Amino acid sequence: MLIVGELINTSRKPIKQAVENKDAEYIKEIARKQAEAGAHYIDVNCGTLVRNEPEIMAWLVNLVKEAVDLPLCIDSPNPKALEVGLELAAERAQPMVNSISAEAERYNSVLPLVLKYKAKVVALLMDDSGMPDTAEQRIAIVRKLVAGLVQAGVPEDDIYIDPLVKPVSTGDSAGVEVLETLQFIRREYPAVHTICGLSNISYGLPNRPVLNQVFLIQTMTAGMDAYILDPLDRTLMGFYYASQALLGKDPYCSEYLKAHRSGLYQKD
Rank of each mutant, 00 (worst) to 15 (best):
V154W: 02
L124N: 01
R92F: 06
I161M: 04
E177Q: 13
P95L: 03
N108H: 14
V176C: 06
I201K: 02
E188M: 04
E91T: 15
A102R: 08
T134R: 00
D158P: 00
I100K: 03
D158G: 02
H193T: 02
N200F: 02
A89H: 09
G175S: 12
S99L: 14
V178Q: 04
G153K: 04
L182T: 09
I100G: 11
L182D: 06
I141F: 06
V97S: 14
E103A: 11
K120H: 15
P163N: 09
N98S: 11
D157V: 07
M131E: 15
L124G: 03
K166S: 04
K118M: 01
E136I: 02
A174M: 08
D158H: 15
Y203E: 10
D162H: 05
V121D: 09
G204N: 06
L164C: 09
V142T: 00
L198E: 09
A104D: 13
K116D: 07
D162K: 09
E177H: 08
A147S: 14
K166I: 06
S129W: 09
C196P: 03
L111M: 11
K118P: 01
V165Q: 07
V176R: 13
E103L: 11
M96T: 13
A89Q: 12
Q183M: 10
L115M: 13
Y160P: 00
G130T: 10
G153M: 05
V142I: 05
I161H: 07
A104L: 12
G153P: 10
I100T: 08
R138H: 05
E103I: 13
E180S: 04
K116L: 10
I195M: 12
E156N: 01
A90R: 12
Y117G: 07
V142W: 00
S99A: 15
T134S: 15
G153T: 04
S109K: 15
R106S: 14
G85M: 11
S109R: 15
P163C: 14
Q137C: 00
S169C: 08
V114M: 04
A152W: 11
E136S: 15
Q183L: 03
V178T: 05
V150L: 07
I161A: 09
M126I: 14
V154N: 00
H193C: 05
D162M: 06
L115G: 11
D133L: 12
R187D: 14
K120C: 11
L179N: 08
A90S: 15
L113A: 09
N108S: 13
L198G: 10
